[in-house]
Write a protein that binds this DNA or RNA. Structure first.
Lengths: 324, 324
DNA sequence: AATGCGTGCGCAAACGTTTGCGCAGACTGA
DNA sequence: TCAGTCTGCGCAAACGTTTGCGCACGCATT
């Protein structure tokens, strides 16, 4: 491109970046040539030279939870607006292989959003060494790194208060054994609020963080003899709650008359008439926005300390928990 | 790294690549040092020098269809195994902005998988100029580019034969107005098979390619006076079929007794007991595999002609279409 | 007319690889 | 012992930018 215009490469760079040192005439000429020839600067060469790639890594969780799909779309939307790109580092429930984590370094990403799984401590260490900032979304960090989460405790407590106000007294919890910080906090919030009211869980079932697990839990509860059956169920994620609802439905148990059900996350699909699920909606757009802000700031100044951000979720009351 | 070992950069490169010209002793020393210092070659510098980035672009469709989530996960899984990375170019229903398409060039991707949306002809032209091979998955190409699809016509026909064999005689179709090649072919296959049996569609409703559209269509059909009501519905995608099923369910219409329902795609969620949806399952893993093979081959030899691959889908008969 | 300053651009090093080529030294065969 | 062949490694150009610095020219100030 530079030889095409008959000028020095530096002039092209500065013209394209709108540097004031370049005359308007020269700038217009270069811009014209660039448009005409469909020229665009090689982002890789730029990265090599400037150190900033405009690339952020993204680690996604299991395909079984639509939450990650919503997260991906929101992140992509914002990235397009802000003018940088997303590199998929991993997607799925499994652990991140070291070799996968290496691409964070190899492709010189400016940072990484981790919404699931955990980097091995070795991988995390390498990121730290190479000044690759990390932000966990919907997860809290282990050793170091920022995070942005929903206020899971408060959300769990809010669901508990709602259930109590609906005169429910026997509580079931659908949790997940592969206990992430997220689900642990939600449970604690729920249970401690129950305890304050002198109530407690009557049953606790592992829902494996997916629909099928929730469905099985719903069936299991439906098969319980009436005295043991809970009249309220809190599933720690919407996807499990939807499974529970279907499990109960196929067993002809009425929601919310027989059992009230609530979830957590605020998935788009929780609003479907067939579910009408009461839930705590995570402020996903804002969470992603903050995550990017944290990353960007740390790209500019790696010495910034970790920030830990929690956001209040929004209680959405639907018919799955009935009327007061 | 090279100065760390006190050797030339070229020696490091060749040692890491296992070049036979390097002695085992030297190679071991360099490998040892690399491991010790957590060294990994800069993929960007490599790209600049070699011309191959190991990066593939990925264009995903709407968040409303889990199909794209399954596609993403499968693509990610295979990419991890094959040792290259995925760059998200776009995700969502909207069109691809030119500026987004530019990142294909700017980041020197070795190719791009497009599962939705259409590149502007200008963007496609730029890709062609820069030798960025494109493969459409689940879409047919417009001007040029390879594609890998399911045999949509045959699939549609197969559903028609199944419905006819189940003694259904009044057929409803849930299509999508933003007619992609995919949905058009499915419809043609279905309708032409009906015509061969002397049958025809009695109703045709736009399901907008999402759950809500399918749900509304289900409700609309449920409200039809009995003589006008179809006894079989083919939704051109599973996500719409699931909406239809729930729309019918809430109107207390029995599936498959009153109406048989079938979809297309073979989503994991179509197997849920609450749906038990008869569908044509797309061979997604194989489709993605072929797509990557096509891209890789064209990276090595850009002069290769476009290839157009169609794969037979697998009919999965479940209870939503009843017994013969 | 000499000095100083701002404007507009080029020069060249640097980023971290890859790759063709070249050049030693050791080994082989005559 | 001498030419020829291998083996093992370095040299240097190239990839396409960015960025600090320098230089020439025109202009305003003394």
């Amino acid at each position: 491109m530079s030889e095409l215009a008959g000028v020095a490469p530096s002039t092209v760079t500065r013209a394209l970046k709108g540097d004031t040192r370049i005359s308007k005439k020269m700038r217009d000429r270069i811009l014209g040539l660039a448009k005409e020839h469909g020229y665009m600067p090689n982002a890789l060469a730029r990265t090599l030279s400037s150190g900033k790639s405009g690339l952020y890594g993204l680690v996604l969780g299991s395909a079984e939870n639509p939450f990650y799909m919503e997260l991906l779309h929101e992140a992509t939307r914002q990235a397009e607006k802000l003018g940088f790109r997303l590199l998929i580092i991993h997607a799925g429930g499994g652990p991140i292989e070291d070799i996968t984590a290496q691409s964070l370094i190899q492709y010189q990403v400016d940072g990484c959003i981790i919404s699931s799984a955990i980097l091995s401590s070795r991988a995390a260490e390498i990121c730290a060494q190479n000044n690759v900032p990390l932000v966990m979304v919907n997860r809290v960090a282990l050793a170091h790194g920022c995070f942005v989460t929903c206020d899971n405790r408060a959300g769990g407590a809010e669901i508990a208060r709602l259930m109590i106000a609906r005169n429910r007294r026997r509580f079931g919890l659908i949790y997940t054994a592969s206990s992430s910080s997220t689900s642990r906090e939600r449970e604690e919030g729920f249970v401690s609020e129950l305890e304050q009211a002198g109530l407690e869980l009557t049953i606790r079932i592992d829902g494996h963080s997916n629909y099928d697990g929730g469905f099985a839990a719903g069936q299991q509860i439906a098969n319980l003899p009436l005295p043991e059956r809970p009249d309220a169920i809190f599933a720690l994620s919407d996807i499990m709650a939807m499974g529970v609802l279907d499990g109960l439905r196929l067993a002809s148990i009425n929601v919310p008359e027989d059992i009230a059900v609530a979830g957590f996350d605020g998935l788009a699909s929780s609003a479907r008439p067939i579910y009408n699920l009461t839930t705590i909606q995570q402020p996903l757009p804002l969470m992603i926005q903050r995550a990017f802000e944290l990353l960007k700031a740390r790209t500019l100044d790696p010495s910034l300390p970790d920030e830990l951000i929690a956001m209040r979720g929004k209680l959405i009351v639907r018919s799955s928990t009935g009327q007061a």
